[in-house]
Design a protein around this nucleic acid. Structure first.
Lengths: 137, 137
DNA sequence: TTAAGTGTTACAAATATTGTTACAGTTAAT
DNA sequence: ATTAACTGTAACAATATTTGTAACACTTAA
């Protein structure tokens, strides 16, 4: 589900979204977020591929927002960064365990549905809405 | 959020719930779930403290269900086992970053709310309902 | 009295995450 | 055209987290 890439990516894109004309380097973001520049570039490359931001190489380059921040939501960021819900974490059961035969399927269905509710909620929050909410505090 | 303790704990308690008279040892569960007995005892001790199962020490001992499996839900299991949503994972921002001042608070609020929706869904699934759903497959 | 359990702690091993180094490619400025 | 400041990416190192192990006190049934 939510992992640290989500937090990092969201934090970064909010920084870019806060000033549409800003072009921040991974190095600048790095010192703001206390995370290594290479990792920032990795996470931001996903945002770039999704078209939410753009990057400019070379001197004076960096990252800047390139989407409608009223339309891009936390769900979109989640989609880019989330882990599979439990795929790797669900224990396989031996064949002798009758329950185990179906438990993975059933949990997969239930948890996927629950995750959908989670995402539905995230979808209500555009980047703009998050920025607004921060202003109000 | 959901971690492997959830999967492990849930799987274990479903095995116990499937047969009310069964008394399974951590060793038995261990070989079924391919997880070390000590870890199973650790996770099950939480379920025990919550009153969902009981344990019997000594020879012939083990774990057995002790709750109304129509009433205990996936949300209850989640509550016992989940990690904090992002507490440790959210990046603190330096003071110079105006956004960072509030971002943690705002994300905390939004994500807590989203998590609530997730839990609301889990609450619909009693252990009995999960077992029933497995039968139907 | 012994064998088979739980409960719990301290520690080891394995795995996953994050940081680091290195370098090719791009761009702006001189 | 050269240089300095960037991105993009891969391979590897360091760190943190998770999981497994060993040890042992305590409990219970046979």
């Amino acid at each position: 589900m939510i992992n640290s890439d989500f937090a990092l990516g969201l934090h970064s894109i909010l920084l870019l979204a806060a000033d549409k004309d800003a072009c921040l380097t991974s190095s600048t973001l790095s010192s703001m977020l206390k995370v290594h520049p290479v990792r920032i570039r990795k996470v931001l490359s996903k945002m770039k591929n999704a078209g939410y931001i753009e990057s400019k190489e070379g001197a004076g380059g960096g990252f800047f927002i390139s989407c409608n921040i009223e339309k891009v939501t936390l769900k979109d960021i989640y989609t880019l960064t989330h882990d599979d819900l439990m795929k790797a974490k669900c224990h396989s059961c031996c064949p002798s365990c009758k329950i185990g035969v179906n438990i993975e399927k059933v949990l997969d269905i239930i948890l996927s549905d629950a995750d959908e509710k989670f995402q539905d909620y995230l979808e209500d929050y555009s980047l703009q809405k998050v920025l607004d909410k921060m202003q109000q505090m």
